[in-house]
Amino acid sequence: MRQLWDISAPVHPGSPVYPGDVAYTQRWCARLPDDGPVNLSAITLSPHVGTHADAPLHYAVDGAAVGLLALEPFIGPCRVIHVMACGPFIEWQHLAHALVDLPPRVLVRTYHQAPTQWDACLTAFAPDTLERLADAGVLLVGTDSASVDLADSALLPCHQVLWRRGLRVLENLLLDAVPEGDYELIALPLRLTQADASPVRAVLRSLA
């Protein structure tokens, strides 16, 4: 059997959230054995909690909702690239050691260990890096950071590159245990037909 890496951040009431966003909460609607034959719960959360796929609707007025996106970018060959301690931006030169025969999906690890609370100093992509990845045929970019843009960015230039170039994106990946290299990515968003993002259960599978 091919090896699997679960690269999904655990979701629970303490999961980091963007300041002011809706944190994860859960309440029980029915409990065994007193309330019937099954346990039933209700959850509330922003679709950006934990590992998630942003939809164009998140950053463009006329962008598509996440449930309307084609699934092909979210499944297939990918490369994990390590750029820890690269500074505030992931520049093209930080990826240069791993760009030969690039597959159409690129996941970037920026943390030695994923944060357990909101990181206001997260590492973002440089917009030009995303432009050049799109030029290289990349369909999807992913990061273990909470955003492709700086945490305090108002203009969101990287999200605008995603929109203009038709790139798909995964954020809040958990890449702590994943070596650099090539894998198969499986990270399908839910079919939420009106949502600006979706949680994903992101998995890497070895190629052999």
Rank of each mutant, 00 (worst) to 15 (best):
R132E: 15
A96I: 15
R105P: 07
L95P: 09
V100K: 15
R105C: 09
C78P: 04
E131K: 13
L122Y: 04
R79I: 05
H97M: 14
R79N: 11
P77G: 04
F125L: 04
H112L: 10
D101Q: 11
L130E: 08
F125G: 08
Q113M: 10
L122E: 03
P77Q: 08
L99H: 06
G76K: 00
Q117E: 13
I90T: 03
A134C: 12
F125H: 10
A85K: 12
V106L: 07
R79F: 03
E91G: 01
C121S: 09
H94E: 15
G87Y: 00
C86H: 05
T110E: 09
A114Q: 05
Q117V: 02
D119K: 06
I81Y: 13
V106P: 01
A96M: 15
V108T: 08
L107C: 02
A114G: 05
A120K: 06
R132M: 15
Q113V: 12
A126L: 10
W118C: 04
F74N: 04
G76M: 01
P103W: 03
Q117G: 04
G76N: 00
V80H: 03
I90L: 04
L95Q: 02
R105H: 04
A85C: 14
A114E: 15
H97N: 05
P115F: 07
R132T: 15
F125E: 10
L99R: 14
R109C: 01
P103G: 02
A134R: 06
F74Y: 08
L107V: 01
A96K: 07
A124F: 06
V100W: 14
I75C: 06
P103T: 08
L95I: 11
Q93V: 13
A114N: 03
D128Y: 12
E131S: 13
F89C: 07
L107H: 06
A120D: 12
P77L: 10
R79L: 13
R109W: 05
R132S: 12
C121D: 08
W118A: 04
R79H: 11
Q113T: 12
L95G: 02
P115Y: 04
R132I: 09
Q117N: 11
R105G: 05
W92F: 10
P88K: 04
V108Q: 06
L95Y: 09
I81W: 13
P77W: 07
V83L: 02
E131W: 09
W92N: 07
C86A: 15
G76I: 00
P115I: 02
L133D: 15
A124V: 03
E91I: 03
A124P: 07
Q117D: 10
A124H: 02
